[in-house]
């Protein structure tokens, strides 16, 4: 972040490296119910990101001391594959993935009706197969779809997006290069219907106005992403309905 470089991130036409405008998202594709063993699963492709999410539970929480007598605990585990980034990542949890697991668990807890099943845990396994900036919000977006697919009661879907500052401009959905060489990165996640913020982090520096502009852009983008989530969830059933008459 903020590494000085001579890479031109925005060209003279105002287009970004991959030809996108300021408020354009990378292509997003979500598929659900792809894992047989898991109670719910989702696979998201967001630009170069490829992330697989599996949900198990609610089930009795183990070890027992982690149980909460009043509500369910969501245990998200974010893990990056060794081959997910350019330079081999040492496998296993590190400081970064522990942090992301924590913020994702907390964001999901805001959406799931955890008070309905005390003493249980809901496991959310997130495997980043290929990383390309914005994995935490892509993971979160996919995780809420996987939870819905598992039939876990939720108030709302969690949907996230990033904004950032690149060459003095606020742009939506940073790519790898913009993330590495831009000057700020702002991942944010909201509940789709209420726009309640469940995750917001910032890396780099933004003025108050820039922050608000970024948040506005993200809020608008989450509406579009939410459409994709909902389509992914209903798709499986509309297809069988058409074939049903055979």
């Amino acid at each position: 972040m903020g590494t000085p470089s001579n890479v031109k991130l925005i060209d003279e036409n105002g287009l970004r490296l991959d030809g996108r405008g300021d408020e354009e998202l990378r292509p997003i594709k979500i598929t659900t119910d792809i894992l047989e063993r898991a109670d719910g699963s989702a696979f998201i492709e967001w630009g170069g990101n490829k992330i697989l999410v599996a949900v198990y539970g609610p089930r009795e929480a183990y070890p027992k001391h982690t149980q909460d007598i009043e509500k369910a605990v969501i245990k998200a585990r974010y893990n990056m594959a060794a081959f997910s980034v350019d330079e081999r990542k040492r496998p296993g949890p590190d400081r970064r993935s522990v942090e992301i697991s924590k913020v994702i668990s907390e964001a999901l807890s805001a959406a799931v009706m955890i008070e309905q099943f005390p003493r249980t845990q809901i496991d959310v396994f997130i495997e980043v197969i290929q990383a390309d900036a914005g994995t935490r919000i892509a993971s979160l977006t996919a995780a809420s779809v996987a939870l819905a697919n598992a039939g876990v009661p939720m108030r709302d879907l969690v949907v996230g997006c990033t904004a950032g500052k690149v060459e003095g401009r606020i742009v939506l959905d940073l790519s790898k290069e913009e993330d590495n060489f831009g000057s700020a990165d702002l991942p944010m996640a909201v509940l789709s219907k209420t726009d309640e913020v469940v995750l917001i982090q910032m890396d780099g520096e933004l003025t108050k106005e820039e922050l608000y502009k970024g948040m506005d852009m993200i809020l608008k983008a989450t509406k579009r992403i939410n459409e994709i989530q909902r389509k992914a969830l209903s798709e499986k059933y509309t297809i069988t309905q058409n074939e049903g008459g055979e």
């Binding site: 109670d39 719910g40 609610p58 099943f117 697919n149 598992a150 039939g151 876990v152 009661p153 059933y237």
Partner: peptide
């Protein structure tokens, strides 16, 4: 109506 989900007594 949910399609999946566990049973609650």
């Amino acid at each position: 109506m949910p399609f999946h989900g566990s049973y609650f007594p």
